[in-house]
Design a protein around this nucleic acid. Structure first.
Length: 358
RNA sequence: UGGGGCGUCGUCAAGCGGUAAGACACAGGAUUUUGGUUCCUGCAUUCGGAGGUUCGAAUCCUCCCGCCCCAG
């Protein structure tokens, strides 16, 4: 493997942050023929805000590339970003669902259009600074959770196609975040102390609701009701709410109220107690399977930063039905359902419906 | 305008002479490559108003104001 290393061409996607910069650094040190690239996503950035894309990102990435002595290019992905990620983000919310734009960015951009472009340009690999591992074991390529379980980003990476796994590199998969930052400092990278990126990258101060306002995306106001249909208050349009949401309802009650779901025909938001949030199963669409033989039971996550929960899965044509051993809180259509066997991601998809009994 | 009851934070609500609990809501912060959750912090010098009794009152007395109920 070391023999071929020098001939392998890698395109490293650089956001201008610490992680992707160190990823580039490591690949450079490993002797790959490296090219740095930053996606221009057409995003205007507020001062002092850290993000995975846009803003000063390009300048920062370029400086790191200069320091590493590798070429740097900017690819224009703004139109695709608008159509596939932001457009879907908005249309999903309008439908009363809660999208996960980071998953879609990976699905359509990074490991979709960008990866295809890289391969088309003759690169052997696309590398990113994600915390995840890809390994070939037993003649199969596997997407695995990283060494740093606290930074595990596999939940966002499930859309990578099985056949593309051999073309993707995650140099940080075996490292802890602390080590990455230490490495950046040691190498004198100017981005070493940059803050973690967080929040939706195309949304600035004020959150996504303000973003909708700025883009003139709005839906009519309506009633907030309890499960019996009793009117408790008013909502400002279904796009401003998501299942499990507590704050922003403006209703005082004996105990906090949570959004249980939506009544589309009546344009109503249904709220209830925390215990009403639990459901036993769900159905999944937009499946991406990373293995050919699915086990009957898996450990699955219905949201980022949550411990996987045991469930039974049943494949139904191009969909999946999952029934949890223990009821799960706030299962939300539009969010990702990602399932694992130990550290391996077996696949994932988008939650379509919630199953309340079974 | 005869009788009875009640007025404490945006809402609900403790307090019953000893110097304003709590919950919900709200705001800020922490956590986080989505949204949501969660966690931490803040939030009535003042108890419908005005007098009075008392060392001391939201708590007792008087009057006024505003609600509610039962008879009308």
């Amino acid at each position: 493997m070391a023999d071929n290393l020098f001939k392998k061409k890698v395109l490293v996607a650089m956001s201008g942050g610490v992680d992707s910069s160190v990823a580039a650094l490591l690949l450079k040190e490993a002797g790959f023929e490296l090219t740095g690239m930053t996606m221009c996503l057409g995003i205007r950035q507020e001062e002092g805000r850290a993000s995975c894309c846009g803003g000063d990102a390009i300048d920062d990435a370029k400086r790191v590339c200069d320091q590493l002595g590798i070429p740097h290019f900017v690819f224009d992905f703004a139109p695709l970003m608008e159509d596939l990620v932001i457009g879907k983000f908005i249309s999903e919310y309008v439908k009363g669902r809660t999208p996960n734009p980071c998953v879609d960015c990976n699905r359509y951009l990074k490991f979709g259009a960008l990866l295809q472009k890289a391969i088309g340009l003759g690169f052997d690999y696309l590398a990113t600074g994600h915390y995840a591992r890809i390994e070939q074991k037993d003649d199969r390529w596997r997407l695995l959770r990283p060494e740093d379980k606290n930074k595990d980003q596999t939940y966002f990476l499930y859309p990578i196609k099985k056949d593309d796994l051999p073309h993707v590199l995650f140099p940080l998969g075996g490292m802890k975040k602390d080590e990455v930052r230490a490495r950046a400092i040691e190498a004198g990278l100017h981005v070493a102390q940059k803050a973690e990126s967080q929040d939706i990258c195309f949304v600035n101060e004020g959150g996504y609701r303000k973003y909708f306002e700025e883009r003139n995306v709005s839906l009519p106001a309506g009633d907030i009701v309890d499960r019996t249909g009793k009117v408790l208050g008013r909502h400002s349009g279904i796009i401003n709410y998501t299942i499990g949401q507590r704050s922003g309802l403006g209703i005082s009650a004996k105990a906090p109220l949570y959004v249980l779901g939506f009544d589309a025909t009546g344009n109503r938001v249904i709220v209830g107690d925390k215990e009403d949030l639990f459901a036993s199963g769900l159905t999944v669409g937009d499946l991406n399977l990373l293995t050919n033989d699915l086990p009957e039971e898996v450990d699955a996550k219905i949201r980022y930063r949550k411990k996987p929960a045991r469930c039974r899965i049943i494949k139904e044509s191009d969909k999946l039905r999952a029934i949890f051993f223990e009821p799960q809180e706030s299962i939300t259509p539009g969010q990702a359902f990602v399932f694992y066997s130990d550290d391996e991601v077996l696949g994932g998809g988008v939650i379509e419906n919630v199953i309340h009994s079974e």
